[in-house]
Amino acid sequence: MMDAKATREGYGDGLAELGESRPEVVALDADLAKSTKSINFKEKFPERFFEMGISEQDMVATAAGFALSGKIAYASSFACFITGRAYDQVRTSVCYSNVNVKLVGSHAGLMTGEDGATHQALEDISLMRSLPNMKVIVPGDYFEAKIATKKAAEIPGPVYLRMARAKTPIYFNDDYNFTLGKGVVMESGSDVAIIACGAPLQYAIEAAERLKKDKIDAAVVNMPSIKPLDAKLVSKMATQAGAIVTVEDHSIYGGLGSAVSEVMAEEGLAPVERVGTKDVFGESGKGPELYKKYGLDSDGIINAVKIVMGKRK
């Protein structure tokens, strides 16, 4: 069994390491530090950690105040609250002012599980991606989360980092070089390209493995940088494979699937089939059960591969 760790743990560990090299980093949380893992920073740097209580709007605008004063402010909560509850604060105080606030949304998507629809953010990428100045990163494993968390401090202006609650397989290590705007080819293949981000990456890899039995040669791309998107890599994969499947634990409206489809609409290179939730809320259940029901597991991805291959020119 492959090692597994949650991307939110990568955030906590990355932030705690970052605190040592960057004294201007401060962290804020809204009564979820134990869940988002910002507690790792709090334990090492209590004087630079600000507990804001259950007040996400206040937290985000306060983070903007810190950033206006030369700090790099990391503010974390559940993805549904930090992007939804505090949307206008993100829009006005953070993005319009273009300040160094790094928003971290943990417990994103169906993989959040038993808490149900209210706590399963399935529209947060869409909300954040549409805001000017905002960059959007969805790490695919623990190390990518940890390294992206540290790298975000070097990216000027607002960044949204989307983390998952559940443990997921580890693919990278501490030497991994995360670059904003770059995707990573995990498996090469010439029949179809599966472009995935976040927790479902494991199922994209599993689907590619299973497709070999059907003599389908599927490439798998990990696309942590949703905005800016690695459009060059998307186009290259489209040219090589002639068909694309996107996979995300998010609505098919406004997230990775939309971003990739926009590139394909502009360049007309390949048909796209989007795996994600289709205009519905989630529900309670175990993460993997929900992935199965909503078609985000390897069965769902294989189904999408077969559909899109039928549309190849």
């Binding site: 600000f50 605008a61 306060t62 903007a64 105040g65 206006l68 206008d88």
Partner: peptide
């Protein structure tokens, strides 16, 4: 939002 921003600057 201004009072929150002000708090951040003050802190």
């Amino acid at each position: 939002q201004g009072l929150s921003v002000g708090n951040g600057i003050a802190l």
